[in-house]
Design a protein around this nucleic acid. Structure first.
Lengths: 212, 212, 212, 212
DNA sequence: TATGAATGAGGCTTCATTCAT
DNA sequence: TATGAATGAAGCCTCATTCAT
């Protein structure tokens, strides 16, 4: 039994292995869930994708629901962390909004598998088992908060007009999701750059506001 | 899918009965799917909700997937039709956009059960079986087209500035979905009116454009 | 939905079918459990033994545990009922004890399959899941009570000497179980009649008491 | 099974270690099996109880079934040996019978964990895999033989009347098991002493016999 | 036409056993 | 020698679908 204190620092070899395995499974699960969604994905499929035995999965996760939730949180945390990190060096609200969207677009490009989760689960949170739903909602709020803060700052700085920051933040997250969705589903024939530029332009005009 | 026109004119009594039964099942399915999502809803549950036998459901639909798709399309068609109908009497783009959103908000209020489908399935379309996905995508495009046209008209009329109508249309549909989602999930504590007004304001400013 | 009143009398056709099916499964379950015990018997095996599909079993029983408990109670009830019925025409305690044992011996002969449950589960009650254990214990007590009463009556009638009726009753049930066990496992080479006669003689002498 | 004598005289150090380890596991297994029965006890649980690795268990036992059988035999051998040892100093049959039961009652008190095995497995022997069953039956016969001999001696000595010694012996073992069972399951509210005295009295009267 | 009993494939999870370290 | 991570067979149970009535 490892004492509470030792927990943070001296990673035992076992800890490393466990972390490695979990990461492996995260990746496989992201792919598998991304392909078919929560219900339609079997634990078998995840194990196969990870190239390990089905039983092995249960050494690292207690249940299918936990795999799902952990995988989703793991990825969302990464995106969140990167957003926070890169926000730090920016001062203007405009730049932050653009970066917010751009990070997610990049993510979608480089994580074709997981992005489907990113997109669909925010949406279909409606139908998930309850504990999962709660967590997902929390993550979503946390994401919106990044923007809410940026916008509030922008308002304070006179960069944008007086408006309800939170509503604006949600508007941006919603639009971002739609953008990603069209990228992934290929519904939009426009070059992503074009679509993005148009969206940003619209957003920005909306935020800056029609000063008569 | 039976197009109303396609089959020779006089609807037989049988056709009427069939239509009636299907309608019944649509309603029940909307409620049931809305409660729990596609996978977690059993055909049994739908039959029970409709007050008929499970076997009977299969006389009117070939499979669970078909029930789902048909139900979804049925509802979306109703929304679409109403939108078209009410667009007809409006001329300004601004009014149309507002109406587009308002119709959907009203819908959510009066169809608490089905609206979860409306919301989640646009999102989780990503993870549906392929034929379902295709149909849903088509519906989504058709919906966006209503706005695209309205916007194009607005541009032509000089009501709003020159901008890619399609991108703007998608932006509106995405924002609308987010709005509904927050209504249903109760994540937003703001009065719906407030949130809506803020969103409309933002949209409109974005569309009208920053005339310096 | 059948009203509460109608429950006892007019057996619907469905009730009959259900009863029939349950009986079928009881029989199969008795055989299967008898062969291998609770844990080692699969629901599949029971279904196969009954000649029906696995899913069908679950139309009549909620779980494996319920099958087990119901089957056991069903059989034990039959034995109990017969004992009660045949006790009614007897007056002497001696006869009752002999009948008690004889009924169970007959049962073992004619129900080779279930008798293993009868025997082992009284014994291995120790290791069953809790709700099962409780029920089994109750059945066992009920069985012993039949004898306790008979013995009390015998004491009152001066037929046997003063002694703790309950302890004596348990002694008889224990001995009976052992007798059956040896019959079923074939461990005893003595003719059953001999063993039985010896046991009865011992019991009777024990109960009647050493008249000096 | 390693008979102490069979292998050349000088026990190697290895033999000692092996014996030690097996003993450790016996103890742990007795506790674990006693808690939950054969099927519901995992090898993991046994290893944990013994404070060793799961793999280690398999260095000393070939399978779970072997652990079970060995453990049971180990305990039964201890009881048997003690019975033999303490029988040696007694001459009357009556004393021996009383001692036989008393030893087992004491055992139950001091080995709360294993006693459940002692009780249930004689009973559920019916449902064990065959090789286990055979061994258990043998142990049971050996146990009964102790009593058979004592009774035969008693008859020869005129201490008790002429009767089938073997049947009487079984009767005693059966009654003993029942006694223990009630102790462990707590079904009997009578003080154990009372129950025991009543049983002994009954037995003795039965054996000594009805003097006409 | 309407029904729901019957079915069995398939899903999640556990656990005895093996084997590389 | 000791370990425990890895495995996959096997178990319980659900549910979409069929079919005899």
């Amino acid at each position: 039994m490892r004492a509470a204190v030792s927990k943070s620092f001296p990673k035992t070899k076992k800890d490393v292995v466990v972390e490695f395995r979990r990461e492996m499974i995260f990746e496989a699960a992201a792919k598998a869930f991304g392909r078919a969604g929560y219900e339609a994905t079997s634990v078998d499929a995840i194990a196969a994708e990870a190239g390990i035995g089905k039983g092995t999965v249960y050494l690292y996760f207690a249940s299918k629901a936990e795999i799902y939730l952990s995988t989703t949180m793991h990825e969302l945390n990464k995106i969140h962390a990167e957003t926070v990190r890169r926000f730090a060096v920016l001062s203007s609200c405009k730049e932050k909004i653009e970066l917010f969207i751009r990070i997610r677009l990049e993510y979608v490009e480089s994580h074709r598998d997981f992005c489907r989760i990113y997109i669909s689960e925010f949406g279909s949170a409606v139908t998930q088992p309850d504990p999962i739903q709660k967590q997902l909602r929390k993550m979503r709020l946390r994401q919106a908060d990044l923007l809410t803060n940026a916008i509030s700052d922008g308002i304070a700085a006179g960069e944008i007009r007086q408006l309800p920051a939170r509503s604006a933040a949600f508007l941006i997250t919603d639009v971002t999701r739609g953008l990603l969705e069209r990228r992934v589903l290929g519904g939009s024939k426009s070059y992503p750059g074009e679509d993005l530029r148009a969206i940003l332009d619209l957003l920005w005009n909306g935020l800056k506001g029609g000063t008569p």
